[in-house]
């Protein structure tokens, strides 16, 4: 049912895939995500819907291959079927007509900011995008961002493309220069924390999107809890977008490493690994839906 119809590599270890899911495509809003279980008996991974095509019933996802589940999803080919896709989940990003809006993203956050920029642009805002990446190889969605943003700034940490430095440096410069009405920040905790400090000084509203560890994205367990203004809220139900000035970033950075490194280094043990064929037999559901 959830067939992969299109797939291409857009950056180092990052692939964009289109999946047929008409029910989800007809309801998705910017900022919402889906839980994807690539093969049976794997854990589900939360993924932002970066684009949706209602007419063809397609949703686009960006796969960053870091763990076993994302690697399995990245390894699937066109016409393969994804085992399970649940969504759209979470609350849509807050949107309206504000004026000048800056959207900052680092790393995989660029995938999450793209639908937000698109929505903001549609509502008549002037959208300025800032993308930060480690190097040119890891920079992604530049072309798409250039289409939806009025102006775009790019920073790479090693200086291999455009400006050398951090995305937050550019943000600071822009905040000093112009009257900004709102900032959206998605990316590493350090970046969002820095953005929070900068915007609070100037009293500019900030929205941040939080990617805490999720088990099933349905509000059943509370592992994605975030401390917001003293109380805990769930990123899967009440988020993933929150007011950036209320988030407790120290708590958040602790929460982000809860799964530990071991979760990303799991290999099938005691199984003959004869290429993907063997893995495929291992993971593939015996009872297909």
């Amino acid at each position: 049912m959830y067939k992969i119809v299109h797939k291409h590599v857009i950056a180092l270890d990052i692939k964009k895939i289109d999946i047929t899911a008409p029910d989800i495509a007809s309801k998705a809003l910017p900022g919402q995500f889906v839980m994807v279980m690539p093969l049976a008996l794997m854990h589900a991974i939360p993924m932002t819907i970066i684009d949706h095509d209602e007419r063809r019933g397609l949703i686009s996802l960006l796969v960053h291959e870091v763990g076993p589940a994302t690697k399995a999803l990245g390894g699937m080919s066109i016409t393969d079927e994804v085992y399970q896709v649940v969504g759209p989940l979470g609350q849509a990003a807050q949107m309206g007509k504000y004026g000048l809006v800056i959207c900052v993203a680092t790393g995989i956050g660029a995938a999450q900011i793209l639908p937000v920029c698109r929505g903001l642009k549609k509502r008549g805002n002037k959208v300025v995008g800032i993308i930060g990446a480690k190097s040119k190889k890891e920079l992604m969605l530049e072309a798409q961002m250039r289409v939806v943003c009025d102006e775009i700034f790019i920073a790479t940490n090693d200086g291999s493309y455009e400006r050398r430095g951090l995305a937050t440096t550019i943000l600071q410069e822009l905040l000093n220069k112009y009257k900004v009405h709102r900032v959206y920040a998605i990316g590493s905790v350090d970046m969002m924390k820095a953005a929070s400090v900068m915007t609070r000084e100037k009293n500019i509203p900030l929205r941040v999107t939080i990617n805490t560890y999720m088990v099933n994205g349905l509000g059943t367990c509370g592992s994605c809890r975030v401390k917001i203004g003293g109380g805990y809220q769930l990123a899967c139900m009440d988020g993933p977008e929150f007011d950036g000035h209320l988030v407790d970033f120290q708590d958040l950075s602790q929460r982000m490493n809860t799964s530990g490194d071991w979760e990303n280094n799991i290999r099938p043990v005691g199984v003959k690994t004869t290429g993907f064929g063997g893995l495929r037999r291992l993971f593939w559901p015996s009872t297909k839906k």
Binding site: M37, A40, L41, M42, H43, A44, P68, A69, V215, N216, T220, C221, G222, S223, E263, I266, R267, P268, V269, F283
Partner: peptide
Amino acid sequence: YDHEFLCRLQSIGKDGVVA
């Protein structure tokens, strides 16, 4: 939390490699 612990061990992919 209790459900978090049980969910991670017992969720649908409980026979899988990750679980």
